[in-house]
Design a binder for these strands. Structure first.
Lengths: 213, 213
DNA sequence: GCAAATTTTGACCGATTGGACAAACGTTAG
DNA sequence: CTAACGTTTGTCCAATCGGTCAAAATTTGC
């Protein structure tokens, strides 16, 4: 029998390694095909093990996805959590945009996994959206609104500001193939993230400059 | 034997009606579950007919998806096609953003169908992206660049400008459940598109105001 | 080194999948 | 009315699906 700790089950070295291997493979598969479109066999093959062996570590397909989503949400919200009330508003927002774009560049599969879940109506993480996510956004929207009131940045809707930052940055992960196809081979290389960073910084900074009145 | 026209097969009245019915149902199903995640049975049930009956009108699952994607791309690119060299730059861009947002509001399933295809790596429409889409964007980017050169709008990267318009507007269709969850029941009603329109207009107009130098 | 525990495998299961097919049913033009 | 054509259905199929199970292979604690 497997021993159980107070919160998480105790695992052997092999269990930890193999579970990581499976999650890595599952991320690859789920992020492309979505939950329904992915099969255990695909994941098992990507992880280099047999299906029954995979099912020894995760008893159901849903368990893999659930574990993946739990981890994802923390990583995904980290940049917004860092948005600091104390710092300079413009600097804070600029580095938030930068961090978000870096995540799109460095963790595109995570971004696509999240996008897949949302597009499908968020059947598995709806409570988290209405709970943890909404709370965090409400909190940060209040911070931004404070900046607006004190005249540090232009007055707009802080919620839609956050949405537009999410949308523009995640676009470079979720719609990567389209971006590359349109930019072509010459401009579609790694430099595209530099160009995007420059453009977005400019767009949002101009859009948020306080108006002298 | 079914008669064939020179380009498209000739169809009876019933065939036309039933095919439309199937495509409507398929849009509903595919846009949520993606191609792999959707089944013919789901589509047949949504269309109110038996599976063999559905397969009488479309011989393979892929044929339905293909027909859907062909139609989609035209509708989807229409707003960008309308972007007119002759009009006033600011007005043109503003109404492009508005049209795009209206499409996100009125055709969210089409938007999600497209998003699903792109996220999955565009296995079925890659040639269209590299061909028709790239050509159109290149053309319009040149128009925008012309506006920039003549000082009508601020100088930035026209490609990333187009990307950011796509991203921000489509976000309200593809990530609708997230937007509604975050905005809550009070602000998440139909008015959210009005708020979004105001915000985006403001963001892009400010970001594109020509700098006096 | 050996027994106990853990890990891996192959064989298998019922359910679902995309699709084929012939027979039955409707419709319509002459 | 009826023959020809268009439509619908029930039945069936092989492949794949998520998942089980017992036995074999391996690792681990002592």
């Amino acid at each position: 029998m497997t021993m159980e700790g107070s919160t998480a089950p105790r695992r052997t070295r092999i269990q930890q390694e193999k579970r990581e291997l499976i999650l890595e493979a599952a991320l690859e598969v789920f992020s492309v095909n979505g939950f329904r479109g992915s099969t255990i066999d695909q994941i098992a093959e990507a992880a280099g093990m047999s299906k029954p062996n995979l099912l020894y570590y995760f008893r159901r397909k849903e368990d893999i996805h659930e574990t993946l989503m739990e981890r994802l949400l923390e990583t995904w919200l980290a940049p917004l959590r860092e948005l600091d009330d104390i710092g300079d508003p413009m600097t804070e927002l600029r580095s938030y945009i930068r961090r978000k774009l870096e995540m799109a560049r460095d963790f595109p599969r995570e971004s696509r996994l999240f996008a897949n879940e949302i597009i499908q109506g968020a059947p598995r993480i709806m409570p988290l959206l209405e709970g943890e996510l909404k709370t965090l956004v409400d909190e940060k929207a209040a911070v931004i609104r404070g900046w607006m009131r004190s005249g540090k940045i232009a007055k707009t809707d802080p919620y839609h500001l956050i949405f537009s930052i999410w949308a523009t940055t995640q676009h470079y992960a979720d719609f990567d193939v389209q971006v590359r196809a349109v930019l072509g081979s010459d401009r579609g290389g790694e430099g595209r993230f530099e160009d995007a960073a420059r453009f977005l910084e400019n767009l949002f900074i101009q859009g948020l400059l306080p108006k002298r009145d």
